[in-house]
Structure formats: C-alpha cells, structure tokens
Design a protein around this nucleic acid. Sequence first.
RNA 1: GGUCCAGUGGUGGAACUGGUAUACACGCAGCACUUAAAAUGCUGUGCCUAACCGGCGUGUGGGUUCGAUUCCCACCUGGACCACCA
Length: 809
Amino acid sequence: MYKHQTIEKKWQQKWRADNLYRTKQEANKPKYYILDMFPYPSGVGLHVGHPKGYIATDIYARLKMMQGFNVLHPMGFDAFGLPAENYAIKNKINPKIAVAESIQKFKDQLEILGFCYDWEREVNTTDPNYYKWTQWTFLKMWEKGLAYESNEPINWCPSCKTGLANEDVEGGRCERCGSKIEKRPLRQWVLKITDYADRLLNDLEKLPDWEESTKEMQRNWIGRSEGVQVNFKISGESEEIAVFTTRVDTIFGCTYVVLAPEHPIVEKLQTKIENYSEVKDYISDLSKVSEEERASLYREKTGVKLKGIKAVNPFNQEEVEVFIADYVLLSYGTGAVMAVPAHDERDYAFAKKYGLRIKAVISCQAKIYDGKQALEDDGVLINSADYSNLSSSEAREKMAAWLEEKKLGFKKVNYRLNDWVFSRQRYWGEPIPLVHCEKCGVVAVPEEELPLKLPEVESYEPTGTGESPLAAITDWVNTTCPKCQGKAKRETNTMPQWAGSCWYYLRYIDPSNNDFLVNKELEKYWSPVDFYVGGAEHATRHLIYARFWHKFLFDLGVVNYEEPFIKLKHVGLIMGEDGRKMSKRWGNVINPNDIVAEYGADALRIYEMFMGPFEQAGNWNTQGLGGARKFIEKIVLLSEIFSHENGKENTKIVSLLHKTIKKVETDILEFRFNTAISALMILINEILADYKKNKFLPLSLDNWAKFLQIFAPFAPHISEELWQNLGKNKSIFLSAWPQYDDNLIRDKIISLVVQVNGKLRANLEVAADISADDAFAKAIAHENVKKWLTGDIVKKIFVPGKLLNIVVK
RNA sequence: GGUCCAGUGGUGGAACUGGUAUACACGCAGCACUUAAAAUGCUGUGCCUAACCGGCGUGUGGGUUCGAUUCCCACCUGGACCACCA
C-alpha cells in the first residue's frame, strides 16, 4: 500500500528537475542562512549517525522556506587533510581521484535521504579556485605579521609523520590515528592566534544563542590567567630565568626554582652545571616517556637539581636552588616556575620528596601552613618583609608595581592557548604560497599567481624526515624570487586540514567568484550564518579557528560582521545498538542505505528525530523504526479515506489541529523535534479514534491539507505525494505554512483540577473563565471533595483556568 | 583538581514560567482474526494491596511553599570538556 521506494525516488527526481531547492534571493523576503558542518569524505561512506544533524537542518530549512524566507542551505566537502590522504595511500590511489569517488558516494547517500540542499553551491576545499582564497588569506596574515616561522619543538605524530597543532592532540595522542605524540624541534609556520585571544574570549559574550557549555569549553581552551612575570637572576651569570606566576604574593616563600627539562637555558649553562651528564641522562630518559604518561596525576614527580646553579629571588636577594622537573611544562607560561611548597600542592609534593625547605608566608583566617599539606588559599602575608600584613590581593598589586618600577618583571596575561602550528609535512593540503630566496629571505608568491596549485607527484606518502613530499619535486621547488628574480626555493609544507574549513561558509554565498574571496554586496546580504549545526567535537578546534579567521577577515574589511555564526547547536551522537560508538571495529555500523531500502527515508528521518532530545546522544534501535513506519502508514491510510469520503468537522479535532500547528512550529524552531513528532502522533491518533467511533472524518479536506503541510518538513516525500494526490499542482514546499487561529486554540471548556491539601481529589469540567467562587461552590459539591473536607477551611488557592486547592486543618 | 551538564516505568523519553508526574513511542502481557504464524486491531502495563478505597512514588537527605521532577542547601552516582596551567 505504501511503496516508499517508488514514491521517494519519484519526488527526488522531480524536485531536482524543477530546481526546487535553488537558492532564491527575492525582494521583500527576509533571508535565513542555515548551515551544516560539512563532512570530510573518507571513502567508507556514511553511517546512520551522520545524517542526524542534516535531517534537523533540513526540517528547519523547509519550515523557513514555507514561512517565506529566502533560505540558503548548502552543502560541501572538506576534502583536504589526513582522512582523505590516508585513505588514498592505503588503497594506492591518487588522493584527487579517491576524493572525487568519496564525494560521489557521499552525495548519493545524502540524495536518497531527500535533503533540500542547493547543490549548485557545492564547495570543495581542494578545488584550486577555492584554495586560491585560503592561500590569499594566509598571505594577508603573513603581511600583517600574523604568520611567522618558528623552530620551537612541536607535537610530532610518528605515524602520520607530520607536526601537529595542540588542538590535534588528545591526551598525548594523535587525534587522527591514536599514536603517541613526540616533541620534535621542527621548522614550521605558526599563526599568531594568541593576538586574538582576548577578542575570541570576550566576544563569546556577544553570542547568547550559543550553548553555554560550548562557550565554557572555549573559555577553558583559551585559558586566560592574569599574573606577573618575574625575572630571577642566575648568580654570577648574565642569564635570567623568567617565571610566570599568578601568586606573586607568595614569592617570599619561594625556596627553589623549577625549569621544564627542555628549557633552552639548560643547554646554555651546560659548562656551569656540575652534574650535566646526570641532567642529560634525566632528559633523555624523560623523552622516552610519552606526554600522556608524564601528565598522569598518579605519576610521582621527578626532577634533578642543577648543581652549581643558583637563582636570586629579586624581592629578598635570597639564593635558591634550581631544578629541572617533569611537572613543569615548556609549552605553558615561560616554561619555568618559582616553587612555593608551603602554598602550592605540586611544589609541596616535590619538596617533600626531595627534602627541600618549606617556608610559610600566608596565613588564612587563623589557619596557617601546618606542615601536612599546602595552604593554597588567599590570606594575609607573613614573613614577607615590608609586605607582611597585606592581603594577598593587595600584595599582588604592590609587588607587581614594584617589579615594573625596578624593571625586574611585569604584569602579564598568560593564555593556555598556543599559537597555531599551521604547517604539515604532508602532501594533501594547500601549498603555502611563500618562496625562500637566498637574498631576499621569505617572499610572498604574487597575488596574481594564485592559486599556487598543488603539483602532481609520484609518491604522496609522507617522508618522515620533517620535509613534505613536495620537497622531492625539484622542478616545482626550484623557482625564481618574485622580488629579485634570483634563485629561490618554494615552501614545501602544506596547510592543515582546518585551514579550508575556516571560511567555507563565505564561499557558499558566492561560490564561483574568482575575482575575490566573496562579493561584498552578497556577503552583506547573506552573512552572518544564522544557524550552525554540527558535532560538539569541534567546539575547541574548528570553531575557534574559524572565529579567528573570520575576525581577521573582518579586520581586513572582507566581511561586515565580527562573529561568523550567530546561533549554534551541537548534535548528539547516535551510538550503536550495543551502546558503543559506531565503528567497523565493533561491527555495529548501520548503513542508512539499508534502512532506506527497508523502511524508507521518511521513516528514517522521523525515527532519528523522535529518538530523544537533539543534543543528546542515544543508542540506535532498529525496532523503533517500526513505530515511525507505522505512523506514516496511518497517515497514508487516512489520506486514502479522505480521497473518497467527506469530512464533518469536529471542533475538538479542529482545535487540536491548530494547537498542533502551533506546537510543531515552535518545536522545530527550538530544535525539539521529538515533541513535535509526538504532537503529530497524538493528532493522528485522535483523528483515527474519532473516525472509528463516529464513522466519518472529523476534518475538512482543507484542514487535512494543513496537516500534510506541517508534517512535510519531517517526511518530505510522502507528504508531497499525498499533497499532490489532493490535486495540488505545485510542490507542498512552495505552499505557505498554515496559520493557526488563537481563537480555536483557546479551550472554552476546561478540566479544572481540584485539590485538597495539595492532593488531587477531583477533575471538574467547567467553563474556562469560571470565577473562584463558582469553582469553589462546584468543588465542595463534589462527592470525593466533600469526603476530604474534614476540618476548617484555612485557605483557598485558585489558579484561573487551571486549579483550585482547598487547604483544611 | 577545575568548569559545566544530567539522574523520571522494563527501555527511549514527556511535563510550558512552581500547579493532574510517567504524554508519545518501543517492549511486554492478554484477547480477537488465523489450522498456525506473521501482519493488523482491541485491552492492559510505576510500586504496595486479592480488589476497591487508599497509600507510596521523579538518585539520597533536608529546606522554602497551599502545592516541588521544577527553586535553595548538602550528599551520592554518571557524563562532557579542560587539567602537574604555575
């Protein structure tokens, strides 16, 4: 009876033939830009979890369309980077070909789910016409001093054979392949994202429609802390050790200084360090331990004293010992700390282990350091010369001022966020458009020569030498300097995967513009993205990078708005039936194609939206699909009856229809699809029950058509089919969303709850506008209420139209 | 350790701003149809009680209130993110 295969295919073809989803920019209509995070095509294809977010935005976009918006709802592919490249290497195909195949596979899978994407605006980050502008933006950053070369040790993935940014490391492991990360000194390009740290942090306030948890994650990631940098002179040397501290008020309790083992000063002072060979051994032992193990809380702190080296506390000229220890990280602050064991838990543990001096300098509400644990609270200073008796906060101010006056230190804001390591030693990425000239140094590739195309190469496997495979193509590497025409070599590193996704949402606005990144008029019309939906795993990566990139484009005057995404929602994962992440490894992957074949795309869409709250993760359950399918079948059945029988309107059902129109509309706008579907089910159940009881349909055909309209965003194929079966000759998605009538929604007769002492004792059918006195009179006449009125009536609470509570004693 | 979020039937979950807890769906049970099964339809389905009446029930304990899943305090459990961050 309900042949989903033929119906779904038919409408997909018809919609495409009619260009139904081509973006329109009609005058007198407001715009709405709704965006999905675009996928990276991997060749494995989609599982049923992937489309969940796409279904939601599709429903939302269809509602907006019917509400008369010019809707921009595009899709594209983030096709550079490791997933595509590793797939290509594994299957021994050229990444370009592999990516093209994967994209086709993805598009086919998306197509059968009936999404309303405007494919004419498809973006592919590996298209030279696209990455021309990725390169252009990079050059602008370089011009402004925001891209710089560095040789600092960075995260190196030995399996992917490339350097990585902090954001690509999870618990000391490569986020892509899970290998242990090593630290390696490597020449690299770095973007000065820390210059934007304060703006990235403060502008979160301007985003009320982002989830608080996401903003909190970004705040954590940026990790702003205010403190001072203090310079400790090294006795008898010209060198200084700079330490960062947020607790300068405890500096009189500093009994030693600790450096990160990799701190450059260690090597500089090697001739002065009496036990240098011991120090070297310690460092090399440590390098064998992964960052993960090193960071483990349970691991005991270890360290080595630098014999013969003393640091001088600038406040009291006291000479203190210097250690290197694994609990100090080079990547945070200055890579050196002043240790105050009486008032810092970590310093305390280290001091206890090595029998170091502990000196208390803070007293906190009569509590003082008791020798058993560090006292970390703020308090009043003791044993701190002129600063004694000041509060911690006063002391911090005065000490910072003194340091600045004596030029021994300064106030400093420190970020956990590091500059963005932007080069990869891999083939499949945007070439960095710079040239190294023997005479002129680093020179930009002239703008008119962009895009600098990624050359064809024999072997695209990573070399592991710290050079990208591009370095082997001498024809390409050897070039002339754009400035002096002398001999020069191209930069051979490529950009990270994140680069292309930093501005793709602008490309959709103006997809084929080869003269500029985006046309200003079009940008002004469509920007910013009104609603952005995607996985929470991007909260601190893509979403920070893209905000940074966008702010830079704003500073350039390319875009007119400071934040790219006004409203943001995260999609909760769909887990396997066994509660584990869907993965080949567990054998719990469900392919949407199989589900569509058996139950239909419409049933799949309804099931996924009905599973639970959108943001929440949930386990897949194929049985649930039967329910979604049955629901659609009931609608098909009703439509059949409507096609040959006349309805006689039942005001109760008409009222319920209008309530449902209102609920479905607000629920979609709030992304509460589960309750929207539940409301639709209730309405259908009521209509069917009424039909069975009274043997005629309780709605007019016009009102039934309204039902089909509000059902359409969820199940577009069957709705379109049933709509056009009613003799409509235009697509249901070109029809206007039905208006609900407030008069019909307001009930005239309500069920008034009567409580005695807060306990339900009766439900009275009364007029909605009944007065307190009338309600009371009716209530006390009720048998079951009478029974419970066993004492004096102390109080009557009346909530009009809802409830009466009688309090007795 | 820090920050944030959550805890409701056998299961997924619902309950708008403090006002009938368990909507909707899945599952299960019984009945009808059938030789039988599937499909479908009907009925039931928080716990205690044989049943009605009633009582108890939203992680635990307390508080505010006429009334608390909802607000406040403490605790327990689970999750997310960050984390020797100086």
